[in-house]
């Protein structure tokens, strides 16, 4: 497991390649990148600033990676979350999951993103023409995270 918080941009392709280098048991890698949009509520934005709770952010992400590892059969997980000022078009967050089969890699990546949105201590502040405002949490993100509380349907590995 790799969990990293950083101000600097990351290289998604290089991070994904690290999970498969020198091994032949990985059959699926899912790479999710969250990107700063150029508008919020229909208004153009100048930039986002991400505040986080150092110490808790790392441990909370690691705890959810461990939960994903116990729920699905994973061969590698990398989560990188940026903080500080981020301009439209720049990357914010990276989740990479590696598995023998695609189902586990897809499901674990989606689970991790849903939990990052609602449980990882980060707060987005958006700079727009009229000033800076804190982004409000979305009900749809809460609902997305809650659906993982149901037991996962068992699937056969024959894919």
């Amino acid at each position: 497991m790799t969990v990293r918080l950083q101000r600097e941009p990351f290289d998604a392709a290089a991070e994904a390649a690290k999970l498969t280098r020198g091994r032949t048991d990985v059959g699926a890698v899912v790479t999710f990148t969250g990107i700063c949009r150029g508008d919020e509520n229909g208004e153009p934005i100048a930039a986002l600033t991400l505040e986080h709770y150092p110490g808790m952010a790392e441990s909370e992400i690691a705890r959810h990676v461990e939960a994903a590892e116990s729920r699905w059969s994973l061969l590698g997980v990398t989560v990188i979350h940026r903080y500080g000022r981020i301009a439209p078009g720049e990357d914010i967050v990276l989740v990479v999951t590696a598995s023998s089969h695609r189902h586990d890699a897809f499901a674990a990546a989606e689970f991790l993103m849903d939990y990052l949105k609602t449980r990882a201590p980060f707060w987005k502040r958006v700079e727009q023409g009229k000033g800076a405002t804190w982004v409000e949490a979305r009900q749809s993100d809460d609902s997305a995270a809650k659906r993982w509380q149901k037991p996962a349907p068992r699937r056969d590995a024959a894919e």
């Binding site: 979350h81 949105k117 201590p121 707060w123 987005k124 804190w134 982004v135």
Partner: peptide, 10 residues
């Protein structure tokens, strides 16, 4: 003990 608004990361 930390206090904060609902989280908006990711």
């Amino acid at each position: 003990i930390a206090f904060f608004p609902p989280m908006t990361g990711g």
